[in-house]
Design a protein around this nucleic acid. Sequence first.
RNA 1: GGCCCCGUCGUCUAGCCUGGUUCAGGACACCACCCUUUCACGGUGGGUACAUGGGUUCGAAUCCCAUCGGGGUCACCA
Length: 584
Amino acid sequence: MSNHSAGGSTDCVTRFAPSPTGHLHIGGARSALFCWAYAKRMGGRFMLRIEDTDAARSSDESARGIMEDLAWLGIEWDDGPSLTTRGGRVIGAQARDVGGYFQARRVPVYNRYIEQLVRAGRAYPAFETSEEIEAQRKAAVAAKQTYRYPRPTEIEFGVFNAALEARWTRACAGESHVIRFAAPREEIVVPDQVLGDVKIAAGELDDFVIRKGDGFPTYHFAVVIDDQTMGVTHVMRAQEHLANTPRHVALQRALRDEKTGEAFRTPGYAHMPLIFNMDGSKMSKRDKAKFARKAAKDAIAKDAAAKGRLVAGTGLPEKTITDFLAAETDAVEIAEKVGRFMNLTLPEVEVHDFRANGYIPEAIVNFLALLGWNPGMKTADGKDLEKFDMKFIAEHFSIERIGRTNAKFDRAKLLSFNGDAIGAMSDAEFAGRWRAWCEEFEPEFAKAVPAGGWETLGRAVKARAKTLRDGVRASAFLMLDDNSYPFDQAAVAKNLTASDGAGLKMVRTVRDRLADVEPFEAGIIHSILEQLAQQSGGMGAVAQPIRVAMTGSAVSPPLGETLAVLGKARTLARLDRCLRTMSV
RNA sequence: GGCCCCGUCGUCUAGCCUGGUUCAGGACACCACCCUUUCACGGUGGGUACAUGGGUUCGAAUCCCAUCGGGGUCACCA
């Protein structure tokens, strides 16, 4: 039996290793999900490691945000930093002790292995500045040649000779340097469980940097050391890393574990397909700027004055807006301000964006699982099985069924999944989750919902909401000022004043019937409307006039709930105002 | 450009490994109709794909090769 109670055994250990330089990208979330799923399926452990060796770009705030996003999705780690959820539960509480899950705190470990490599003649200090290297690289490119760092002639592969010792002494004395790996001149085979064996010819690798001038290891080095010392057995990541993997394999062959003295293991690799936008571009934060810019330019093309309104509406300096429109800057903050002012839904690229726009984690996780993986099962009626939950993924995930072809992220399908997931909730569950979301992301609206009104309103809105935010849109009637909301004139003409004011007469009738209703509940209101409908030529003749009178438009959720949530006083006030201000 | 990976409807994909049961199935999107108190929901139906060219074979989406196309990677970023 395993002595690790929280997760499974250490026979299988997968890891997700983000660098904390921003929010969790949706593609990263998929990587994490697959790693998690495989570990669960194998009864192993899923680890979260923070790769913060880029001191300039990393932040603890980002690390925390990433952990919260993962937790929100339901992707919880057995090993990694601990995170206390809102419910007070601690994720990572049973983590194994592997010497820290933040790479920046593991520098002494890396340095020991650096020295091991140097003394084995497999790594050496190099003293060129990055400017010098850059100049050489440019010259090579200009000459249409592939740049490879030329190994100094005095360095003998696999031998700690006098020249190397002299370099090492200079480095240890504090002279500015990097450490480079003496790459082997032999073919390297990366055994990949998705792609099969990927062979890289001898001489393709050059002596890449494994420790930077600032003393931190590079990604390539830290990954190899950590995966070995933390017992990682399976490395699953996006295909963009495939071309880096030979470096890792080469490093593994050159290193020995300082505890066991044995050569490093080569973990099982599985590189998964990449995810792109529908137009084939990379999904990036810049997509928000592109989207907002296009919308703004379109508006200005229609009406030149729109730019002035944009400046005023966003509160940004005119120069900032001008630069933004000219694509001088892709700043997310500007894009978001423009988006907010223009009432745009900017394209989501980070998990947090989806959350803020009203997506629910079950739908995201389900959709993500289908991007590059497929259970290959049928439902009872013979269709492809597409809808499933985390439990299913944990039970059925397999590397063999990971695809090889890149995928485009189809937001329309995600939206459909989200709508279905919302539709599958009970009314009570929807009401609870919708309310919690509104309180966090639409506090103004949340305040406007009367106490006890959430379930009634939720029932009215659930079927027409593909996102939680849609529920707010559908409830726009609630936010109207009872005495000044505008009327859609076409709707008024059609439903109120037409046929000699038949609609207005109906409003009058309904108003009088409603005045006595007690309690003012959706079901009761509905049955009253139904009665009237029977007496007067169908529900359309009753409902549409009321709808227009109550909301100013011909579109709203069902009237029983709409009126009930508004309450008797507001309902009568609105009907009265309509009667007062309108005539044939 | 060098090296590497990939190529089934607009998109995600099933089928490919173990060639025939597939003039290729599902889902999303789209269109039409039905239902209907508006908007939605739901129901029914429809169009659309094996990149191209060569092989192998009685037979190829499935095996082989070439071409074309897409992508990744070549940092003191991860």
